[in-house]
Every structure is written in C-alpha cells, then in structure tokens.
C-alpha cells in the first residue's frame, strides 16, 4: 500500500467523522507540512497556527476530496493558500516573484565556495534571502522531492512557471553566494 493509498483511506474515514483516523492522518503529514509552512513564514508560532488551520480545513472538507490528485498535493495546496493568505496580511514580505531581476551569473567563485567548509552557513543564509514563492517551490522540490507537475498543482500555476521559479531561485542563490564569498 502506497502512502497515498493510506492517506486516501484515512481521509475517507475522516470524512465520516472518525477522529482516530484524523489523528493518524495528522501524524502522517504533520512534520513535512510544518516544515513546508515554516520555510515560507520563518515564524514557528505562525507556522503552528497555519498547520492547525490546515488540518481543521481537512476535517471540514475531507468529504469533498475526490482523489483526482494525490492526497499530499491537496493537503499542501491548502497549506500553501493559507500561508500565502497570512503572508499577504504581513506587508513586510514581498509576494511578487516573476518580476525578479534576472542577471546571469555563472561565477566560478560561487561554485568554488561550495567546496569550502563554510558552505553550509552560506547556503543557509542565501536560502533565507530567497523570495517566498521561490523558497516554497524549492522546499517542495528539495525537501518534499516532488515532481514539477505536482508542485504546479499545489501552488496553482503552470508547470513552466514552476521550472522558471526554480531556475530563478538557483540563479539568486549563485548571486548571493558569490557576494558572500566576495567573488
């Protein structure tokens, strides 16, 4: 039985008001979902709030899930929208992404810095500087290991946009690392 089968079967029980199944469903996704939300909000309290709201939404809408996508895609989609909604209320976080200034940078210095002992700190720092939408896509691609088609469903955008956002995120990382390493 795949994870999706398990999740689907739990969701069916949740739709009939089975609280034990709901707890199992929570345990199945809670960590991954929390990390996804936290990577976007960077605030553990708010992330916990969104996590809670997302699962409450699952409880209310379980019966509307028809199985046309993976359960995880549906779940992360709910979390994504709730997170974006919360971020819109926080004016300090820019939500635009596609007007990101593109400057090609294939600096060998940026590549070289990865080989240094400090690379982890630099990468961590640069990841934090990514725009929220880029971080979301990167999180889904590299933390959840999702294919671009599924990420497109979660963030509700065309598949090409997902690829472009990843591309821009990578370029931004290179630029950031190059600056940090004085390259």
């Amino acid at each position: 039985m795949t994870e999706n089968d398990t999740a689907f079967s739990l969701l069916k029980r949740v739709s009939k008001g089975d609280e034990t199944a709901f707890a199992d469903f929570y345990n199945l996704f809670e960590k991954r979902l929390y990390h996804f939300i936290k990577s976007k909000l960077n605030d553990s309290f708010e992330a916990a709030d969104i996590l809670n709201e997302t699962f409450l939404e699952v409880w209310r809408k379980a019966e509307t899930f028809e199985g046309r996508s993976k359960v995880s895609t549906w779940l992360f989609g709910i979390a994504y929208y709730k997170t974006v909604d919360r971020m819109r209320k926080r004016t300090d976080i820019p939500m635009d992404s596609d007007n990101f200034p593109e400057t090609a940078d294939d600096s060998p210095d940026a590549m070289a810095c990865l080989l240094t002992a400090e690379k982890s700190d630099h990468i961590k720092f640069c990841l934090d500087t990514l725009k929220a939408v880029q971080r979301a896509v990167m999180q889904l691609a590299f933390f959840q290991d999702l294919p671009y088609s599924e990420i497109a469903l979660i963030v509700d955008c065309p598949e090409n946009t997902v690829k472009t956002r990843m591309f821009h995120a990578k370029q931004a990382m290179k630029r950031c690392l190059s600056n940090r390493m004085g390259g």
């Binding site: 936290k38 990468i123 990841l127 990578k170």
Partner: peptide
C-alpha cells in the same frame, strides 16, 4: 551545485514541529 543546495535544504533546522 543543486545537489549541495538540496542537501542543505534537507538539513535545514526548521525547529521542532
């Protein structure tokens, strides 16, 4: 380069859920 980023994303300390 991408593998390095991915490793870092996976090792991110996102706190305890």
């Amino acid at each position: 380069f991408l593998k390095s980023i991915r490793d870092e994303v996976l090792n991110q300390d996102l706190g305890v859920s």
